[in-house]
Design a protein around this nucleic acid. Sequence first.
RNA 1: GCCCCCAUCGUCUAGUCUGGUCUAGGACACGGGCCUUUCAAGCCCGCGGCAGGGGUUCGAAUCCCCUUGGGGGUACCA
Length: 506
Amino acid sequence: MNVRVRFAPSPTGEPHIGNIRTVVFNWLFARQNDGQFILRIEDTDRERYRPETIPVIMDGLRWLGLDWDEGPSQKALEQSGVENARMYAVGGPHGPYIQSERLEMYRQVAEELIERGWAYRCNCTPERLARMRELQRAAGEQVMYDRHCRDLAIPVSPDQPHVVRLRVPLAGETVVHDAIRGDVTFDNGLIDDQILVKTDGYPTYHLAVVVDDHYMEISHVIRGDDWISSTPKRIFIYRAMDWEVPIYCHVPLVNGPDGQKLSKRHGATSITEFHEQGYLPEALFNFLALLGWSPGEGEEREIFSRDELIERFDLFRVSTAPATFSYDKLNWMNGVYIRELPEEELVERLLPFWQRAGLVPDPCPKEMRPKLQRIVPLIQERLKRLDEVAEWTAFMFVQIETPPLERLVPKGMTPEESAEMLQATRDLLAEIEPFEAVTIEQPLRDLTEELGVSVGQLLGTLRWATTNQKATPPLFGTLAVLGRERVLRRLDAAIERVEEGGQGML
RNA sequence: GCCCCCAUCGUCUAGUCUGGUCUAGGACACGGGCCUUUCAAGCCCGCGGCAGGGGUUCGAAUCCCCUUGGGGGUACCA
């Protein structure tokens, strides 16, 4: 069987990370089976339609490495008002891949359904429907369309405003054969006469998705669990048209850390946000693939390359229970991927974050690169997210405040003793040649013995004096990056403060 | 309300289909230790779970029923 799957976002905003996880499953399944992964834009909701989200969605997918084999063409994108349409155009033999450009197909199928007796026109007003529901709720009845227009002696005329509704069988059961959770049975009597075509002539999702999936020859419909209860409606349309029903694979939803729907309040929820917070696409991809799926017995690894995931992924082993999105675990995994990056590569990835923090100009001057190159090994194993580079290294680029007195006088020492220690340190650092991590270390250690102070007292105070931070990258390398001139200047300021403060205390 | 789905450490999960090898394994997080100039990284140790109740069976995390809990659906939104 030729595997053809799709992701069909609605351009009303950015997809939720839970939906993206489902996209990852689709993509993995397609790649593993040498199938096609199709991108289709479902823009039938004209009220919430926001064309500018189309390129944002596409950028996000590409950033995560989720390339599509068929998708909107340049012409289709231009007609939807997308700028730089050429950059996003893919095309394919089953287009157009934007629903608003397929209206004629939906209209024809709707017509066909009416002719075959599987659909009917309805001109009930929204007001009547609202009142009807209110009454039903008050009476404790099942809330659904009362089928007022279903069997009128004189059917609603096509010439007046109307919707088209599905004529759902009144009795019997419909079974959804789901490849992940097995057979799920629904009582037909409880299924509403779904609207297929709205008054504005646009199809609803339920009609459009069936028509598109059919004509695009989709083999497996892999989507969120929230769709399962509307699947019988889809099946009726397939049957009515004598079309083959695709294989349904409903995957569980993803919740936030508190078990509730994932929302902004929990942290990043869209690809754009994860990107901006400094998550690596390969880490996010790895994490998402393992959310609701695992390679199973005998495999205790968590880190898998893209190719390994393509090879091992098993759609039919996807969990049936909803998962909770864990930022803790993602942060850990992102750190693992950051540590695995070659240093030169990490410089490139970090550059935009340094620039965004205003620490490095954009474009980056050539003469600045060696410095960045030297910083990276100092911070590589400390970063969990790329955006943390700013707090770790700001003092290497901009001026610092001279630390308060108490930070410059270590435990067990008087201000005088500390001033003396800092002065000796300054004198020593002024002489060391060349001023590098390897040449700085030993003389400083020797100095602690000479002065009879502990390593912690001397290096701790030196750290505060030169960085004004409690935690920093390794000190000797940090001093080398700062450069002798800057280190001496900061030490002078620190010594001055200790001497002033010391006298003040006497 | 009604319908559907789900249920193993705090979290992601292995094990469930094909009951015994499970005194339930791994990862994240958390606690402790080692290393160490700080923070990390790394290594070692620890904490911690089959939602509850009935069955079936020689034997149940695994099969059945009920309860409870969670999620989803119930639109001229997708």
